[in-house]
Simulated scan of single mutants.
Amino acid sequence: MNKVLIVGNGFDLSAGLKTSYGDFINSELFTSHSGSLLFDRLKARYVKSKWVDIELFLKSYARCISVPSRRVDLLSGEDRRALHIFLKNDDHLDQATENFHEEYVSLKKALVDYLNDQDDLGKIDFKNGVDRYFSENHTSKKFNAVLTFNYTSQALRKVFSGCDPPDILHLHGSLVQNDVVFGVDDQVEGVSEEFLFLTKSDHASYGKFPSLKSIALESDEMHFFGLSFGETDDSHFRPLFEFLSSDDARIGRRLVARGVQTQWGGDEEIISSINRRKLHFYVNGRNGYVGIRNRLRHLVGQKVSELKLLNEVSCFDVSQSDVFKIDQNWLDEHSV
């Protein structure tokens, strides 16, 4: 697997699909669940902040109703703000605890139903040349696989419709297979064991495919598009980037370069494996660049220099009509 594309929800958004959490919360489908404590608190959070990560909200919600002796004042300030301190009495706590699993399942089903309606070829409208860019990129050197964190598939299928398509692997399940992984990571300190159904690893389809670190060992090129590298997916990205910024990455490349037999191939890969791995990051303008830069610095533990020395790192701006490779002039002009 020499060349892979890894995509997140930003890819669907670039295709004109209304797949953000905000789009979902503002939909008629979401509003139809008014009266549900979980739905109502989630809506209130979004209205106040104009943005919400539903998975992070679920973790805060679970912590809030897991507090020993139901002491809301024991919560961290972040968790209290996330919920607007809505659990003001035992009645609210009883209702939230008793109905949490049922409401969580309803929330997941509503999200799936909403995305099924959005995942429509007729709604796809790439305006920034992304579809043409990746189609041509695939033609010049085939992507061996596309790994997607999205439940949807139509935008990717459209991009590769005019050529021999790569394998598309849904890391968090898909709408087609009805096996979506929706929840929080395993870092659930303060969450009662009765709510561990929230964890992504508790889903039946989680772990169906190899880890991103394993994929990196096989890859000469890795393209990242539409990803925020947020903390809800730390279990995927932290091991990957810790590996890519460590001497282990260098040693691994040398082993393959010497023709050591591995499960990923042998002598025929020697020449292509001598060069540094290419890492391509696609960002949406200045804010996208700053966000990715800061998250990568967090993931590699400040070892950005090592990441760039061990790998050939390039960034591309996709906010304009064409994909543009970011250079120093772009960085200076955008004050980053």
Rank of each mutant, 00 (worst) to 15 (best):
L87Q: 01
L74T: 14
Q154R: 15
S76T: 15
L121W: 01
Y114V: 08
A82F: 06
H101E: 14
H101L: 14
V130C: 14
H101S: 06
T97K: 07
V72L: 06
E102H: 12
L107Q: 09
K142R: 14
L147D: 06
D113K: 08
S135Q: 08
S153M: 09
T139L: 13
E98V: 09
K108F: 07
N116M: 14
Y114Q: 05
V72H: 00
S153G: 05
V72S: 02
A82W: 02
F134V: 11
N137R: 13
H84E: 10
D73Q: 08
K142H: 13
V146D: 09
H101G: 01
D91Y: 09
Q118V: 15
G122R: 06
V146P: 07
F143I: 10
D131P: 01
Q154A: 13
A82C: 05
N150H: 03
S135L: 07
D120A: 10
V130R: 02
A145S: 15
D119K: 05
A82M: 15
I85R: 01
F86Y: 12
A110L: 06
F126L: 02
A96W: 05
N137Q: 13
D125H: 11
V146Q: 06
F143M: 02
L115Y: 10
K123C: 03
E136V: 11
L115K: 08
D119S: 09
H84Y: 01
L147T: 06
D119Q: 12
E103H: 09
L115F: 12
V72Y: 08
V72P: 00
N128K: 12
S140T: 15
V130T: 15
A110M: 10
